[in-house]
């Protein structure tokens, strides 16, 4: 069986804004011939129950991701900088909410 189906349809990442005022959130991916078709398909695949009011589609190849091997190097330095968090500072009770 020859199925030259989707190998030439690029992959798109789909981001949906669930309601006005919220950010677009990644919700999945799909294959489509072009951006317009990707939008149409994203609407059918990811918003059948009013899950969104706006959709972004981005070619998957356009995304540059950090390398998991660099995770330590990139993110660990933040671990010992607890003074960046408000809870690091002790404030007298009588000051109240700050």
């Amino acid at each position: 069986m020859n199925t030259p189906a989707l190998k030439d349809w690029p992959l798109w990442e789909v981001f949906v804004r669930s309601k006005q005022g919220l950010e677009h959130k990644h919700c999945g991916s799909l294959h489509a011939a072009d951006a317009a078709q990707a939008l149409h398909m994203a609407r059918d695949v990811y918003t059948r129950r009013q899950e969104g009011v706006s959709i972004w589609v981005v070619p998957s190849v356009a995304i540059t991701a950090s390398n998991p091997d660099d995770k330590g190097e990139l993110f660990d330095p933040a671990a010992d900088k607890i003074y960046r968090h408000p809870t690091f500072y002790e404030i007298p009770e009588e000051v109240g909410h700050m």
Binding site: A5, L6, W9, A33, D34, Q37
Partner: peptide, 8 residues
């Protein structure tokens, strides 16, 4: 699928 690709 062919038509969509040709159009794109």
């Amino acid at each position: 699928r062919d038509a969509a690709q040709a159009y794109a």
